[in-house]
Design a protein around this nucleic acid. Structure first.
Lengths: 145, 145
DNA sequence: ACTTAATTTATAAAGGTTATTAAGAAAGAA
DNA sequence: TTCTTTCTTAATAACCTTTATAAATTAAGT
């Protein structure tokens, strides 16, 4: 349940020196309720009604704080805006090349790839990132017409 | 051999309406000789000596042209600059979290992940991207001291 | 050599993100 | 409650990468 996880996030903030502000609460709430992976600007626009005076910098600052505390992950893409994900457990993303929709999906760790990479390159593996691109059901249907 | 592949790239440009200019040749040459994955700015700075009047826009324009023709691939990262790869065959990248070094490595296609993702999400898979992060040999050695 | 269309250069502009700083507010102490 | 301290916000400017624009230049075919 979103509310439960939101509460956990708030609790884990309390254990640090991070203060709870109305803006912070609203940003977190939005992240946990919208199951999308919003950009900073989308969050900013979504909260315009509640906080007409909120600055974009506030959104960015707080997202950075949330990242540092570990309750939010940043998904970075080329020239486009970053997106923010409040699901911090390991999972991958399926991204629609047409509409940009992002869907989560789970897959057991790619340990084999990691250990091969380790042997071949001599690197000490720390993490990996994988995304799959394609057309979402909506976009592949409309394309057929 | 780098020279051979460079010549192939030049030839494949000739088959289009793309003209060969000294700047273009130099950018391609740099891409094929440096085995790194340079940013546009690195290329720009590297060629400053030969082309004191070259504009950054020229580098970007040409990299876009090369991408369109298919002889160069762009590797995009969050806020940081894109890097450009003249190896267009499928392969993955191992990236050092400390110094940013990028090393190529091959791995058979992740068909299984793709087809699972297809079933679970209903997407029509078109491609995927994977990167592995860690510490390169140099950086993990110095860390031990 | 001539012509035409592609290319370069220089510059401005766009878009996302960060830095700065003064004003404001949260959390704990008195 | 009130005070105090430190964190946070808001507004704005600045930064950085990349793209757009427009005039001058040049490659390539005739």
């Amino acid at each position: 349940m979103a509310t439960e996880r939101l509460q956990q996030a708030i609790d884990s903030l309390k254990s640090t020196k991070v203060r709870m502000t109305p803006q912070r609460h609203a940003i977190l709430e939005y992240l946990y309720e919208s199951m999308t992976h919003p950009t900073a600007d989308e969050i900013y626009k979504a909260l315009e009604g509640k906080f007409p005076n909120m600055s974009v910098a506030t959104v960015y600052n707080n997202l950075r704080v949330f990242k540092e505390v570990g309750i939010v992950k940043e998904l970075t893409y080329g020239d486009a805006s970053s997106r923010f994900d409040c699901v911090t457990t390991d999972h991958y993303h399926m991204i629609c090349n047409s509409c940009g929709k992002i869907v989560d999906f789970d897959y057991p760790g790619l340990d084999e790839v990691e250990s091969l990479a380790e042997h071949v390159t001599g690197f000490q593996v720390e993490s990996h990132r994988m995304e799959i691109y394609g057309k979402c059901p909506d976009c592949s249907t409309t394309a057929k017409h």
